[in-house]
């Protein structure tokens, strides 16, 4: 049987994926460089998930992309467009609000536990 906590963590991370990706695309990146950049900052994202997500965000009009033949092989570079920047601003605001609320909720939880203990 699969570990239920592991699934919950994956689900939690999946919810932050779009915000994570948008936050890194103010300067243009190709898929692999983005995956490396996130990994360097401690966030390993499954490549089979990340690359299709870039496509979907582009289809939704949040990213622009173009092929570049500079370098050892042709690469598709992605970058935030104006709609994407707006979306990033809105999502970031939501994120900070959510974190603030969750912090309060979690502290209360910890406080309850310490009282019980």
């Amino acid at each position: 049987m699969t570990d239920p906590t592991g699934n919950l963590i994956s689900e939690l991370r999946r919810g932050t994926l779009v915000l994570t990706v948008l936050s890194q695309l103010d300067e243009e990146q190709y898929g692999y460089s983005l995956a490396q950049r996130l990994a360097d900052q401690g966030l390993e994202i499954d490549q089979g998930t990340l690359y299709p997500l870039l496509r979907r965000l582009e289809e939704q009009g949040l990213l622009d992309s173009e092929w570049s033949v500079e370098g050892p092989r042709p690469r598709r570079y992605y970058r935030l467009n104006d709609t994407g920047r707006e979306a990033l601003k809105t999502l970031s605001g939501e994120w900070y609000d959510l974190v603030a609320v969750l912090e309060k909720l979690l502290r209360k939880e910890e406080g309850d536990e310490s009282r019980v203990v």
Binding site: Y30, G31, Y32, Y51, P72, R73
Partner: peptide, 20 residues
């Protein structure tokens, strides 16, 4: 309609990962 483009990108990404 998206096959050729995704194939080209996937090939490029796989080669990046392999090179690394």
């Amino acid at each position: 309609k998206q096959r050729t483009d995704v194939e080209a990108e996937l090939q490029s990404l796989l080669m990046d990962a392999l090179q690394d």
